Simulated assay, not measured.
Amino acid sequence: MDGSASALAAVEEAAREARWRRAALRVVHAFIWARMKVSLGPPSYGPPEGGLRNMADRLVAEAVERATATAPEVEVGSVVVPGEPLTVLETESQEAELMVVGSRGTGGFVGLLVGSTTVHLAAHGRCPVLVVREAPRADGPVLVGVDCSPASEAAVDFAFAEAVLRGAGVLALHAWTSWNAPLPPPQDPSMPYAHPAGAAAEAEERLLAAALAGRRETYPGVPVEHRAVRGDTRQALIEASGSARILVVGARGRGGFKGLLLGSVSQAMLHHAHCPVAVVRGGGTAGTDT
């Protein structure tokens, strides 16, 4: 919580998530000024309620009030932690079930669609990170980007669990092109490059079905739509996000450079999706706070 409009929207969504999960909500403000060796109290010539520390306390109090109004049944706590935001939030994520942040804060460059703190947390957070970009929809499916890699398993599980919490269906979208889709073995070994028309599309459909295998049994009440499309992954997800309640993506997929913690598709969704975006790096934590 940094006092921005984006952060307040994130607080409201975090309160709803906490209610659905029956979890406590912890509002955190990273108080960097304590490390800058500047005066934290009210100036001698100003009102007693002035000063940087009082301002931080007011920001947190406003967030707690907003969260309580959104979900009165949720236990809401708050803390002002000395330190810079990246370190504070990454540390907080170690004990959390879910981290919720706004897409833009009070610092940085105005022209950027997503702040550097948000991108860093999506890459380094120890639990799933939900980035609130636009006002969440009350209808529509939980959209999950499936690239059929082992790394996307956690994103698929998170999407189905989120669908249960929200009372929604799941739209599993897999986009492929001739550049990233492995062709099936040829029917005639003497002609290794000969494949029947539609062979690649059928292979990708099977990969998507395999990636979702077992979820119907685990989540029998969740309607599921499979959609394998030929085209650019970023564009397909951005377009589908316009009618989704939330978009879930893995931090890394089967393409790109292995050394990167956050893939190009995930970063594009943080900047351009039309709904809140959840980035899932792994299996999450056993924390109880949102």
Rank of each mutant, 00 (worst) to 15 (best):
V229C: 04
A172E: 05
G107Y: 00
P82K: 12
Q94I: 00
V229F: 06
P189Q: 09
P185E: 07
T233F: 00
T233E: 14
A61C: 02
R137S: 08
S152E: 13
E162R: 15
V224L: 15
G50K: 00
A240V: 05
G107H: 04
R66S: 15
C275N: 04
P185F: 08
D157I: 00
P128C: 09
E225H: 04
G105P: 08
E239A: 13
E217G: 03
L183F: 11
L173V: 14
V101F: 03
R245K: 12
S241P: 06
L86S: 11
E65R: 15
R234N: 05
L112Y: 06
V229N: 06
G41D: 14
R206I: 05
R252G: 02
E153V: 12
L165E: 03
E73I: 03
R126A: 12
T106R: 15
E202K: 14
V146K: 06
L183D: 03
L112A: 11
T177G: 15
A23G: 07
L171G: 05
L208S: 02
A278L: 09
E12K: 14
P196C: 04
G107F: 00
A10F: 06
L247A: 10
A67F: 01
E49S: 13
V164E: 13
T117L: 04
V79A: 12
L59C: 02
E225A: 07
H272D: 13
A123Y: 09
G167D: 00
Q267S: 13
P184V: 09
L183C: 01
V27F: 06
G83K: 12
V224I: 12
P141C: 02
G115W: 11
V114A: 14
G169M: 11
A159L: 11
D157K: 12
E62F: 02
A194V: 09
V74S: 03
N54M: 04
E95L: 15
G282F: 09
V80P: 00
A209V: 13
V265G: 03
P186W: 05
